[in-house]
Design a protein around this nucleic acid. Structure first.
Ligand SMILES: [Zn+2]
Ligand SMILES: [Zn+2]
Ligand SMILES: [Zn+2]
Ligand SMILES: [Zn+2]
Ligand SMILES: [Zn+2]
Length: 402
DNA sequence: CTTATGTAGGGAAAAGCCCGGG
DNA sequence: TCCCGGGCTTTTCCCTACATAA
């Protein structure tokens, strides 16, 4: 019942103060909402939208009533007549009532008559002061009529109810997307403007929101909040952990309709599809070769740069690829993982092992269409062909088709 | 002829890092 | 603020073909 009268009063107050507000007008001012207002903005907004503006609170209205005294009715009537007897000598704005005029003047004088005894902060108006005091008291006088959740300010309950109504008053003029709160809207606009106000204090990289720079910081601190419940491996990033878990579950959500292969990772799947489409987006500007994956392309580029990042600490030889380097290391370790079950010989590399096995199987993959002769290795094949041409490369090309 | 070593590319798995939005 | 789903990039790996030296 107290609630009803309070709202009734509020409605009455609002209707008279903003009688011609409609949705288009609200949209126009979407940008200015919830911002720390500059003096000029405050002046401009005197009689503007109510969107996401905190409703004037009952105590404030009472206070104004007291200040207005007997002249209250006369000032109320000025709302209808448009008469504004009070003018600001600093910014030329005019006001209908002495109280709004007084409040306005505090913008220019910087006067803050209300002070918080708990944290020493000072405030220019009693309503902002009272709202501030709720931080210390924990008082939450506003409640959602749908779910009952309570809030400290009317603005909070106002934006909250949009969860239930689905109302999204803010729309992006660039892409048409709609948003329920001004803060999400403002964050969205950074997508289009490219604004990134939050830099990383360690590496300088910039981010659109504070929370993004905070999660980014975990890279520098080495903090790994997420761990796999199956194998205990830890991750800085939750989505990486989720993808990691597919290793254990065997989940492979992406399957190729052409060859039936399935993949746990979308990007890997996409690269796989290039096998079927023949797409090779990466091309070498030096030798015109094209590649389907960026990693293969990068590895190729090392040929031209001469970069050999892998070096053997035993013999100082250097290598361009890690697999070659690993294979080389078996020279020093003597490791020979490939063993022949027929003659018990062991080999350090798979290709050598394969050629060896042809001794037992008699396989001779290199065939000659002209002479019916077959060869087990490319070198023996070549010695056969060398006498037939001066240009070794052309012969090779002709016969490799067989 | 057989074996060892080196070059290069194909393809995939997994991790790393980031983004927009509810 | 947290969380979710999604995206691109990077690293690492295994495998293979081929050439050539020993
Ligand atoms: Zn947009
Ligand atoms: Zn795991
Ligand atoms: Zn496929
Ligand atoms: Zn090239
Ligand atoms: Zn070595």
């Amino acid at each position: 019942m107290v609630q009803t009268s309070k709202y009734f009063l509020k409605c009455l107050f609002y209707y008279h103060l903003f009688p011609f507000v409609h949705s288009d007008a609200l949209q126009q001012h979407a940008f200015e909402e919830e911002e720390v207002l500059t003096d000029q903005q405050v002046c401009n907004q005197e009689r503007n939208s109510s969107l996401d503006q905190e409703d004037p609170e009952t105590p404030q209205i009472k206070e104004e009533k007291e200040e207005l005294g007997s002249s209250q009715k006369g000032e109320h009537n000025r709302i209808h007549t448009g008469e504004k007897p009070y003018s600001c000598s600093t910014c030329e704005k005019r006001f209908a009532s002495s109280s709004t005029f007084k409040k306005h003047m505090r913008i220019h004088t910087g006067e803050k008559p209300y002070s918080c005894s708990t944290c020493e902060k000072r405030f220019a108006s009693s309503s902002t002061f009272k709202k501030h005091m709720r931080i210390h008291t924990g008082e939450k006088p506003y409640s959602c009529s749908t779910c009952g959740k309570t809030f400290a300010t009317s603005l909070e309950v106002k934006t909250h109810t949009r969860i239930h109504t689905g109302e999204k008053p803010y729309s992006c003029s660039t892409c048409g997307k709609r948003f329920a709160t001004s803060s999400t809207f403002k964050t969205h606009m950074r997508v289009h403007t490219g604004e990134k106000p939050y830099p990383c204090s360690t590496c300088g990289k910039r981010f659109a929101t504070l929370s993004k720079v905070k999660t980014h910081m975990r890279i520098h601190t080495g903090e790994k909040l997420y761990s796999c419940s199956t194998c205990g491996k830890r991750f800085t990033d939750l989505s990486t952990l989720k993808k990691h878990k597919r290793i254990h579950t065997g989940e492979k959500p992406y399957s190729c309709s052409t060859c039936g292969k399935s993949f746990a990772d979308l990007s890997t799947f996409k690269t796989h599809m290039r096998i079927h489409t023949g797409e090779k987006p990466y091309s070498c500007s030096t030798c015109e070769k094209r590649f389907a994956s960026s990693s293969t392309f990068k590895r190729h580029m090392r040929i031209h740069t001469g970069e050999k990042p892998y070096s053997c600490s035993t013999c100082e030889k250097r290598f361009a690829s890690s697999s070659t380097f690993k294979r080389h290391m078996r020279i020093h370790t003597g490791e020979k993982p490939y063993s022949c079950s027929t003659c018990e010989k062991r080999f350090a590399t798979s290709s050598t092992f394969k050629t060896h096995m042809r001794i037992h199987t008699g396989e001779k993959p290199h065939s000659c269409s002209t002479s019916e002769k077959r060869f087990a290795t490319s070198s023996t094949f070549k010695t056969h062909y060398l006498p037939f041409s001066e240009d070794n490369r052309i012969v090779k090309k002709q016969h490799s088709l067989n």
